[in-house]
Design a binder for these strands. Structure first.
Length: 283
DNA sequence: CGGATGACCTGTCGGC
DNA sequence: TGCCGACAGGTCATCC
C-alpha cells in the first residue's frame, strides 16, 4: 500500500489521537521487523508524551517529549489501526493481539495504536529528534516532491546522462523521495512518457513537465485519501487504505482511458517490478 | 561508478 | 478441495 500519499494519510489519521497523549504502555510482541527493534524500545516509549507527528518521504516520525523520535516505516504491508476508547481512563485493556500485530501503543486516553505487518518489510527505530536527518535510513533521501527543493532545474540535472529507464529513476528515493510503483506508473502515463525511456535521453522540456505532474498526482491522491476516508479512518479503524481510480496501474488488458485511444494497457517487467502503460499514448 | 538482480516475508489469487 | 506458481504498494545488499 504505502507510497507517500498513503503514508501522509496515515499520519493525518494518527496525529489527532496521538498528539498530546502519553504512551502509557508499549507492547512489543517480537524482537524485530525488517531489522531488530532498538534497544529497550518498549521502555523508551513508556510514559513519553507525544509532541507531534511528521513525515519524511515514506517515514512517519513521532516526536516524543524526552528528545527521541519514533520512526515508523510501513514497508509493503504495514498497517496502522486505531481502536479503544476515545475518552476516559486507561483501563489496562489488553485484547489478544491479532495475527501480525507486532507493536501496540496504549495511550493514556484509552486509545490503542496497533502496527500490523504481515510481510514484515516494515521497520521501527528510535533516534534523537535533533539531527534526525542524519539517520542512516533518511540521510540519502532526495527532496520531498511536494517541497520547495524539488523543481524543474533539479530534476533535469539529476536525470542528465542517466542511462537507467525513467521508471527506475523515479523509483530511486535518492533522486526524489516518496514515489512508489503505482504513482510512478500514473505519473508517466499522465506525462505521455514510456517507462522504458532512458532518463538521460528525454528532452529537458519533457523532464521539466514531470515536476508539476508528480506534484498533482500526489496531491490528488492525498486529497482522495482525505475525502474517501472522511477523517482518514475506515470504520474498522484502519488508516490509509483507499481505492483511488488508477488510470494504468493494475489495468493490464483494459482499454486506455483516453477516449481518442483504442489501445490496451500493457504490463512489462522492469528490474523485477510491473510497469503498466499505454503503448499508444506513452512514447 | 551505474544498473540489474536477489533477498527478505506472508498472503492471495488463478489455474489445474 | 488441494497444490503450485505468480504476484504484491519497499528497499537493501550484492553482483557484474
Amino acid at each position: 500500500m504505502p507510497e507517500l500519499p498513503e503514508v501522509e494519510t496515515v499520519r493525518r489519521g494518527l496525529a489527532p489521537v496521538m498528539e498530546g497523549a502519553v504512551i502509557a504502555q508499549a507492547d512489543v510482541n517480537r524482537p524485530d521487523l525488517r531489522w531488530p527493534f532498538p534497544e529497550n524500545m518498549a521502555g523508551r516509549l513508556t510514559n513519553q508524551k507525544v509532541l507531534g507527528l511528521r513525515r519524511r518521504s515514506k517515514y512517519i516520525l513521532v516526536d516524543l517529549e524526552g528528545g527521541e523520535s519514533l520512526l515508523i516505516h510501513l514497508g509493503m504491508s504495514g498497517r496502522m489501526l486505531i481502536s479503544g476508547h476515545k475518552t476516559g481512563d486507561y483501563h489496562h485493556d489488553h485484547p489478544v493481539p491479532a495475527k501480525h500485530d507486532h507493536v501496540v501503543l496504549h495511550l493514556d486516553s484509552g486509545v490503542r495504536i496497533t502496527f500490523n505487518d504481515a510481510r514484515r518489510f516494515g521497520a521501527m527505530d528510535l533516534l534523537p529528534t535533533v539531527g534526525q536527518e542524519d539517520h542512516w535510513l533518511m540521510r540519502d533521501l532526495g527532496p520531498e516532491p511536494l517541497g520547495n527543493n524539488f523543481d524543474e532545474a533539479y530534476l533535469v540535472e539529476r536525470l542528465k546522462n542517466r542511462n537507467t529507464p525513467i521508471k527506475s529513476a523515479l523509483l530511486d528515493q535518492r533522486i526524489v523521495s516518496g514515489l512508489g510503483n503505482i504513482y510512478v506508473c500514473e505519473v508517466l502515463f499522465r506525462a505521455g512518457i514510456h517507462p522504458a525511456c532512458k532518463a538521460g535521453q528525454i528532452a529537458a522540456k519533457r523532464v521539466s513537465g514531470l515536476v508539476p505532474i508528480i506534484r498533482a498526482v500526489l496531491e490528488e491522491a492525498i486529497a482522495a485519501g482525505g475525502s474517501s476516508l472522511k477523517d482518514y479512518r475506515q470504520a474498522d479503524g484502519e488508516l490509509g487504505y483507499f481505492q483511488h481510480g488508477f488510470q494504468v496501474y493494475d489495468r493490464e488488458g483494459d482499454p486506455c482511458v483516453n477516449p481518442d485511444c483504442t489501445a490496451q494497457i500493457t504490463r512489462i517487467v522492469q528490474s523485477g517490478r510491473s510497469s503498466f502503460f499505454c503503448p499508444q499514448c506513452q512514447r
